[in-house]
Every structure is written in C-alpha cells, then in structure tokens.
Simulated assay, not measured.
Amino acid sequence: MSERRQDYKRHGSRYKARMRAVDILFEAESRDVDPVAIIDDRHKLARDTNPIVAPVAEYTETIINGVAVELDTLDVFLAEHIAETWTLGRLPSVDRAILRVASWEMIYNTDVPVTTAIVEAVEIASQYSGDKSSAYINATLDAMASKVETLRERAANPEAVLAEASESLDDAPVAPWDDSDALDDSDALDDSDEDFESVDAAEVFEAEETVEVSEVAEDSEVSKVSEEKADES
C-alpha cells in the first residue's frame, strides 16, 4: 500500500499535465503546427457528445501557452547551456519538448520548485526516451538551475536575449546518437566532391593546354634548327 501511495505522489496531476504538454509539443513539431491550435482542437473534441479525447488539464494548457510565447527565448537559454558535443536543433523532438517544458517551469513559473521541474523532466525522459537522454537533460537543466535567477532577469527582456544570440541554434555539433541527417551529410559530401572534381578538371585542362603550347613551341624550335642546318649544307 505504501508503494502505491508513493507512486501516486510521484505521478500526480501535475506530472501528468507535464507529460501531456510534452506530447502536444512533440505532436506540434512533428506536424509543424501551433501547439496552441492543438489545445483548441482538443477542447472541441472533448466537448463532443461522444468525446474521443480526454479534456486538457488546466496546467497543461498553461505550460503550452507559456512555451509557445517564450519559445525563442527558451531555445536561446537551452542552447547556451547545452554541452559542446550536443546541439538543441539536432536532438530528438521528444527531448526538445521535455527541455522546453522544464525550462519554462524553472524560469517563468516560480511556484514550481526548480528541483521539482528537473526531477520530473528526467523522469519523463526515462519513460519517453533513453538513458543518454535522461543524463543529458539532467545535466542541461542543472546547468541552468545554477544561474536561474540570472536567466529570470534576462527573460524579462526577450528582445535583448535574442539580440545577444550571435549564433544559430544549428551551428553546434550533432548529438552523438543522431544519424537523422546522415543522408544529407553524404549529399553535401557528394556536392563538394563534384566541385572538387570540376576544379581538378579545369586545372588538368589548363595544364594540358600549357603542355600542348610548350610542345608546339619546342617543335617549332626543332624545325627552325633543322632548316638552318639544311641551309648550311
């Protein structure tokens, strides 16, 4: 009975609201739609005579609206605290969703203890993703937690945050497990090979042309010498 009670506390209503927020953010990115529009659709479907979806919890909607409004600022902060061997833009979509939910809670919802936001994000990652994701998400959020007050102050002026972002979020190295763009990388390599070959071909042509001119000049010199010898004779 005590184990069941502990599990209930661990996976209470807010935990479920966070999980559904992650689901919706993941779906929105996969379909390239506004997550707020998905919330509106869920509300309509839940009001049907025979509803096919569960109503959206109030806290889920709060998270989604908050992340949608502050997305650019959140992504800048996440990119700043990402390890050098990772990149936000190339992480699995579900990991991005988890990071965005947790970072929004840490920075914009001061009613939630920072530790709670981190612990529950890692727990969701362990259910939705893998061990590497849990460890990476934990490290990133811990780094943000160490300077959360500074991040909150900066978040009050989002224009300045975006202006300070000097690099694109996709400029950092690829996450170690991510092979989603392997084909693109190989295509890029093919393109660079074509350029390389065309440059080589031009150089070879130019070199051959130079050799031809040299050979013609040499032939002319040989002919001239032969003619002079013939005249002397």
Score class of each variant (00 low, 15 high):
L71C: 06
L162Q: 08
P51K: 01
E227M: 12
L141Q: 07
A46C: 00
S103I: 09
A156M: 09
A175E: 12
T110L: 12
E61V: 07
H81I: 05
L25M: 09
T60C: 12
S168F: 14
N50T: 11
Y8I: 10
P158G: 00
A17Q: 15
A121I: 05
A143R: 15
I124D: 06
D75G: 03
V69Q: 10
A117K: 02
V119H: 10
I38V: 04
N65S: 10
A21H: 05
A21V: 09
A139I: 00
T60E: 14
S30H: 13
Q6L: 14
H43D: 13
V56F: 05
I38S: 00
D191T: 07
K224S: 10
F205Y: 05
S233F: 15
S186P: 01
L45H: 08
A202K: 11
V225M: 05
T110E: 12
V174T: 10
L141H: 01
V69L: 15
V101A: 00
V67F: 00
A83S: 14
K44I: 14
I82A: 10
A217Q: 11
K16P: 12
S93W: 05
E29I: 06
A17V: 15
Y128W: 07
A57E: 09
T110M: 11
V216M: 11
R100D: 08
V222G: 05
S186Q: 10
D179W: 00
V161D: 02
E208L: 02
R47Y: 04
P176L: 08
V67T: 02
V112L: 09
D190L: 08
E197W: 00
E221R: 09
L189P: 04
S192L: 11
N50M: 11
D178N: 14
G66H: 02
N65F: 06
D184L: 08
A207M: 07
A160K: 13
V76M: 03
P92C: 01
G89Q: 13
S220N: 10
V225I: 07
R20H: 14
P55W: 03
L45W: 06
E3G: 11
I64D: 02
D184C: 03
